[in-house]
Amino acid sequence: MGKVDIKWSELGFSYIKTDYRYLSYWKDGKWDDGELTKDNQVHISEGSTALHYGQTAFEGLKAYRCKDGSINLFRPDENAKRLQNSCRRLLMPEIPTDVFIQACLDVVKANEHFIPPYGTGATLYIRPYIVGVGDNIGVNPAPEYLFSVFCMPVGNYFKGGLAPTNFIVSEYDRAAGNGTGAAKVGGNYAASLLPGEEAHQRKFSDCIYLDPQTHTKIEEVGAANFFGITKDNQFVTPLSPSILPSITKYSLLYLAEHRLGLKAVEGDVAINKLGEFVEAGACGTAAVISPIAGIQYKDDFHVFYSETEVGPVTRRLYDELCGIQFGDVEAPEGWIIKI
Score class of each variant (00 low, 15 high):
V236L: 07
W335P: 07
R89K: 13
I208V: 15
T37S: 15
A191Y: 02
A50G: 05
A176G: 15
H200V: 01
S205G: 13
S9N: 09
A63G: 04
S192H: 05
C66S: 09
R174Y: 06
V313P: 04
S48L: 04
D173R: 13
Q84C: 13
P238A: 02
G161I: 12
G187Q: 11
S86R: 04
Y209D: 06
S9W: 01
G284D: 11
S205V: 06
L146F: 11
I168P: 07
Y25P: 05
Y129N: 05
I229C: 04
P312N: 06
P241W: 12
L61R: 08
G132I: 06
S170F: 03
R88C: 06
K38I: 11
D206S: 13
R315P: 01
L260G: 08
H52P: 04
V303T: 14
V236P: 03
F304I: 00
V99T: 13
Y53P: 03
L194V: 15
V265F: 11
K231F: 14
E333R: 13
Y20M: 03
L244I: 08
A199V: 07
D173C: 11
A163R: 10
V4R: 07
A224D: 01
N72A: 09
D19R: 12
A264F: 03
M1P: 11
A286K: 08
L90T: 01
P143T: 04
K273G: 15
T308A: 14
F100S: 09
Y25I: 05
K263A: 11
N272Y: 11
E78K: 12
V149R: 05
G119K: 11
K217L: 14
G281F: 01
L253P: 01
I324S: 06
N136G: 00
A270I: 07
R259M: 04
S251Y: 03
T314L: 09
P143K: 02
E59H: 06
K273T: 15
N178H: 14
F114C: 00
I44M: 05
K203R: 15
K38T: 15
E276R: 13
F204C: 09
G34H: 03
C104S: 09
A293V: 03
L252K: 01
R89Y: 03
P164N: 11
A199W: 05
A122I: 04
E46Y: 07
V139W: 02
V108D: 00
Y318D: 12
V4P: 06
P164K: 02
G334K: 05
I6Y: 05
E198T: 00
T237R: 00
L252Q: 05
A63I: 10
G222C: 10
S48W: 03
S170W: 07
H200D: 02
G334R: 14
G34W: 01
F226P: 03
K159E: 14
G60H: 09
L105E: 12
L194C: 12
K263T: 14
F74H: 13
I229W: 07
D328A: 12
G54L: 08
A191W: 01
V154Q: 00
D328S: 14
D319W: 12
P195M: 09
E198D: 02
A191L: 14
D135C: 04
T314I: 06
I95Y: 06
L73A: 09
L260I: 12
P164F: 03
F277E: 00
A199P: 02
I336E: 13
G186Y: 02
A142C: 04
S242W: 09
T237W: 00
E309I: 13
V236D: 04
N166Q: 15
A287Q: 03
